[in-house]
């Protein structure tokens, strides 16, 4: 079976020849082709080349279009800063919705309007054309709290939960609609899976998560699934207190950061949830030895059980020794679920 068949079969609970392998690479993939990270973020051809080369040389089962959290916000008109060798970042001091009243007149930008979202959609289409028969093509959208934070300013949004709950709900309604439109065009362009990155969800406790974040995430996930795509949820940081809710979203893949133990996730989410992750990307994958990487991924596999996909807890850091990443990949290549 090829990579695409392997991942799809595994997600559907059918037998596979070996563990699927889907680590997140962005800056690492860019470095593999010697490109500037600014170009990886802004030119879909560079991104696609980096992904295809990296997935090919390490034997990943997928390619992915994530580069930075600012695609949607930039198209909405938020001020972003570009760096030659860092991800595009939001300028929080000048947040688009610093004045809450602007939300009422803010229009959802056309994902095909020639902006940064359009560039991401072109990346999906190019990846589909070049490797889509062989590998899973994964698009990417920001989740409700992550995108809400991008538009409003993360520090301000954190206090909005107490100061103005109605505004937060309106903001999340806007964001879910925005992300669904972005996701729809990525699915049309050929994405098999849509990754939902909702990093800021790990900053809130279970009450705020259940009251505000979960319902918006649920609408987003269900909407993407209605389009015929599968969903990979990734929340950076410590999600131990919200694992149960994350499991109830019904995502095909829950991709966990290293601060949330896979054994706990398995207990909270039941035996059928496919879990992905989650060795520490810095202390183990980047700073460790190949032997330590192998030991850590074996432990992840044991904790997660057979419904497992190999990956790191978060993005593979740019300067990860290739032999360490090869050790991670070799584990997937040599083990059945």
């Amino acid at each position: 079976m090829n990579s695409r068949e392997r991942v799809l079969a595994h997600l559907e609970g059918r037998p596979v020849d070996r563990l699927p392998l889907m680590p997140i690479t962005m800056m690492f993939a860019c470095a593999q082709i010697g490109a500037r990270y600014r170009d990886y973020c802004c030119d879909y051809r560079v991104l696609a080349e980096g992904q295809i080369q990296t997935a090919g040389s390490f034997g990943f089962d997928y390619v992915n279009t994530m580069s930075d959290p600012a695609r949607e916000a930039a198209d909405c008109g938020a001020r972003v800063e570009y760096f030659d060798s860092q991800p595009v970042a939001l300028v929080e001091d000048d947040a688009l919705l610093a004045d809450k009243k602007r939300l009422a007149t803010l229009k959802i930008p056309d994902p095909l309007g020639g902006g940064r979202m359009h560039n991401g959609i072109k990346a999906v289409a190019l990846l589909k054309e070049r490797v889509g028969r062989e590998k899973i093509v994964e698009g990417w959208v920001e989740g409700p709290i992550a995108e809400g934070a991008d538009l409003r300013g993360i520090n301000t949004l954190m206090t909005d939960f107490f100061d103005d709950p109605a505004f937060v709900r309106d903001l999340f309604d806007f964001v879910v609609e925005l992300e669904l439109r972005f996701a729809r065009e990525q699915v049309r362009a050929g994405a098999d899976v849509i990754g939902v990155g909702d990093a800021a969800a790990s900053l809130v406790g279970p009450q705020v998560y259940a009251e505000f974040v979960w319902p918006a995430e649920k609408r987003l996930v269900a909407g993407i699934q209605e389009m015929g795509a599968k969903v990979r949820l990734h929340i950076c940081g410590n999600t131990r207190r919200i694992l149960n809710g994350m499991g109830r979203l019904g995502c095909e893949i829950v991709d966990l950061d290293s601060l949330a133990p896979l054994a706990e996730a398995r207990r909270e989410m039941g035996p059928n949830q496919v879990l992905l992750g989650n060795l520490n990307p810095v202390t183990v994958l980047r700073n460790g030895t190949p032997e330590q990487v192998t030991g850590a991924v074996a432990q992840c596999h044991q904790d997660a059980g057979s419904r497992f996909i190999v990956g790191a807890g978060c993005e593979v850091p740019r300067d990860t020794p290739p032999e360490n990443l090869r050790a991670l990949c070799a584990y997937a290549h040599q083990h059945k679920p």
Partner: peptide
């Protein structure tokens, strides 16, 4: 102790 999270901490600081 994971009884408070970032929002609670920020409003206390405020």
């Amino acid at each position: 102790a994971s009884e408070y999270f970032v929002p609670e901490l920020l409003i206390a600081a405020r």
